[in-house]
Amino acid sequence: MNLPSVFIFNWIFLLALFPVAFFWLRRAWRILVKNDFSEVALKKGLPPPSAEKYAPYEMAINMIGGVVIVVLLVAVLGFQALASEDWVAIAGVTLWVKLFASFALGRQAHGLGPAKKKPAAGK
C-alpha cells in the first residue's frame, strides 16, 4: 500500500539524514583531526575524566554511522539503487545501533552504577 502520506514521510526521513550524517562525520573529524575530546562518551552532557582513552571508539562509531548514511544517500538519490523499504530499514538500523553504541560507550567510560563518594579528609 503506497499512500501519499507514506511517500511524504519517506522524503522527510530522507532529508533528515543529511544533518544526521553531517553531525556524525563532524564529530569524527573533531576527534580524529582536531583532537577535541569534549564530545567523547558523554553522560549528562559531560565527557569522562579519561576521554582520550575512549576517543578512538567514539570516533569509529561516528565515522561508521556517518559513512553508512552518506553511502545510503548516494545510493538512494544518485543511483536509485534501493527500494523504499530497504533504505528506510538500513537507515533506521544505523540510527538505532549508533545511538545504542554511543550510549553504551558513555556508560562504560563513566563507570556503571552511581558515583562513589570519596571519604572526607581527616575522618
Rank of each mutant, 00 (worst) to 15 (best):
residue 116 K to V: 13
residue 49 P to K: 10
residue 13 F to N: 01
residue 91 A to R: 00
residue 32 L to D: 02
residue 46 L to I: 10
residue 112 L to S: 06
residue 113 G to H: 09
residue 118 K to H: 10
residue 76 V to R: 03
residue 49 P to I: 03
residue 76 V to E: 01
residue 104 A to K: 07
residue 14 L to M: 13
residue 78 G to F: 09
residue 98 K to S: 09
residue 58 E to W: 00
residue 44 K to I: 03
residue 101 A to G: 05
residue 65 G to N: 12
residue 3 L to F: 11
residue 111 G to F: 06
residue 111 G to I: 04
residue 70 V to P: 02
residue 98 K to I: 10
residue 10 N to R: 14
residue 68 V to T: 15
residue 56 P to M: 08
residue 15 L to H: 03
residue 84 S to K: 07
residue 58 E to D: 15
residue 64 I to K: 03
residue 2 N to W: 01
residue 2 N to A: 13
residue 97 V to M: 09
residue 20 V to F: 14
residue 16 A to F: 11
residue 41 A to G: 05
residue 106 G to P: 08
residue 97 V to E: 03
residue 64 I to P: 02
residue 18 F to K: 05
residue 86 D to Q: 14
residue 29 W to R: 12
residue 56 P to D: 08
residue 41 A to S: 12
residue 8 I to K: 11
residue 2 N to C: 06
residue 85 E to K: 05
residue 98 K to W: 08
residue 13 F to R: 03
residue 47 P to Q: 07
residue 25 L to C: 08
residue 53 K to I: 11
residue 122 G to W: 06
residue 108 Q to H: 14
residue 6 V to Q: 15
residue 92 G to A: 01
residue 30 R to N: 09
residue 107 R to P: 00
residue 19 P to H: 08
residue 13 F to P: 01
residue 1 M to C: 04
residue 120 A to S: 09
residue 65 G to H: 04
residue 9 F to N: 11
residue 78 G to S: 09
residue 35 N to G: 01
residue 116 K to P: 00
residue 24 W to T: 06
residue 50 S to L: 07
residue 65 G to S: 13
residue 51 A to S: 15
residue 4 P to C: 07
residue 79 F to M: 12
residue 119 P to H: 11
residue 100 F to C: 12
residue 66 G to C: 10
residue 92 G to M: 02
residue 57 Y to N: 01
residue 77 L to N: 10
residue 55 A to D: 06
residue 27 R to T: 10
residue 119 P to D: 10
residue 29 W to Q: 05
residue 26 R to L: 13
residue 95 L to N: 05
residue 94 T to E: 04
residue 91 A to T: 01
residue 97 V to R: 06
residue 94 T to G: 02
residue 43 K to C: 04
residue 99 L to G: 12
residue 27 R to P: 00
residue 62 N to C: 15
residue 84 S to D: 15
residue 48 P to G: 04
residue 32 L to N: 09
residue 102 S to C: 13
residue 49 P to Q: 08
residue 57 Y to Q: 12
residue 56 P to K: 07
residue 67 V to A: 03
residue 122 G to K: 11
residue 53 K to N: 07
residue 10 N to D: 14
